[in-house]
């Protein structure tokens, strides 16, 4: 009956040796290659430092003007522009301007990085069922594995700082854009694609004239989701040395500063709402032609 009471587990020493083996192997790997990998990411780090400094150094009225302009270009809605201006004024008034700029910087860079990697990957996945079958479980893992778990190897390799923070954010925020690009292209009307083929389109012409434009609503939903998920990672990223609104939130949690936590938390919410509304409205405007009606 012993078998039923005790799970036939690996011996304690063996298990310890196994774990130790993995740990040592990875530390060795990171000791040997850490510098090279850091060097590889250096340009990205310099860019992030420069971009963050730029946002912080720019006079606040100009920044608010730029945000308002971007909101207008994206959404074409006075309400959203006013909301944007009021939110940023309030953020500045409550002394969170610098942290907010740092957060905007990392979110922007993370989003562009995810778009730059995610859309091409999504396109490749839509072309090959085999690639889709291989990548989908990886995306599942990226989305479900607790963030703290992949922070460990990232920190071991790259230490703490902006680049590991950015990587952590991207691991979490990349899957939706990849998934929705893949899905969007797969859902493109087969007849339209056939028409493109029948008129002698090359592969590039099909991709840029038909597949991407018709997949745009889904791709855009993916961009929106990616931004939202990147924002959700702000607090966790601050644990490994990313400046921004996550830092005071973390401090508030460990010291029970209710007001500090609430204010910075709400600032993150405000950013999320602005990004979401602007990107959604922009996505909708791209779809204007889908509206029916026989108006001339």
């Amino acid at each position: 009956m012993e078998l039923f009471d005790d799970f036939p587990s690996m011996g304690r020493t063996d298990l310890r040796d196994l774990k130790k083996g993995i740990d040592f192997a990875f530390s060795d790997f990171s000791r040997d290659n850490g510098e090279a990998i850091e060097g590889f990411f250096d340009p990205l780090m310099y860019f992030m430092v420069w971009f963050e400094k730029l946002l912080m150094a720019a006079p606040w009225p100009i920044m608010i003007l730029i945000f308002a302009l971007l909101a207008w270009l994206g959404a074409r809605s006075i309400g959203i522009v006013i909301g944007t201006i009021v939110s940023f004024l309030a953020i500045g008034y409550f002394g969170m301007w610098e942290d907010t700029m740092a957060t905007v910087a990392i979110i922007s860079v993370a989003t562009f990085l995810c778009i730059g990697l995610g859309i091409p990957l999504g396109i490749l996945m839509s072309r090959s069922n085999r690639l889709q079958a291989g990548v989908t479980p990886v995306l599942d893992i990226m989305q479900t594995i607790p963030s703290f778990v992949y922070l460990i190897p990232v920190v071991m390799l790259l230490g703490i700082g902006k680049v590991p923070g950015l990587i952590a954010v991207c691991i979490y925020a990349l899957p939706p854009i990849v998934r929705l690009t893949n899905l969007g292209i797969r859902l493109v009307d087969k007849e339209v694609l056939e028409a493109a083929e029948a008129f002698g389109s090359s592969y590039r012409q099909k991709l840029f004239d038909v597949q991407i434009p018709l997949a745009l609503p889904n791709i855009f939903a993916g961009v929106n989701q990616t931004i939202m998920m990147a924002l959700a990672m702000v607090v966790i990223a601050s644990m490994i040395g990313v400046k921004g609104l996550g830092v005071p939130v973390l401090r508030a949690v460990s010291n029970q500063y209710l007001a500090l936590g609430l204010m910075n938390g709400l600032a993150i919410v405000a950013l999320a709402v602005i990004f979401d509304r602007v990107s959604q409205q922009y996505g909708k405007r791209l779809q204007k032609h889908r509206e029916g009606g026989h108006g001339v």
């Binding site: 028409a195 029948a198 002698g200 389109s201 004239d209």
Partner: peptide
């Protein structure tokens, strides 16, 4: 050759129109 053939020699009209909506 096939692409040029489709571009210049033979065109097609589809049952469900297959126009580009955008």
């Amino acid at each position: 050759e096939l692409r040029n053939f489709r571009r210049n020699k033979m065109s097609m009209v589809f049952q469900k129109f297959a126009l580009l909506p955008h």
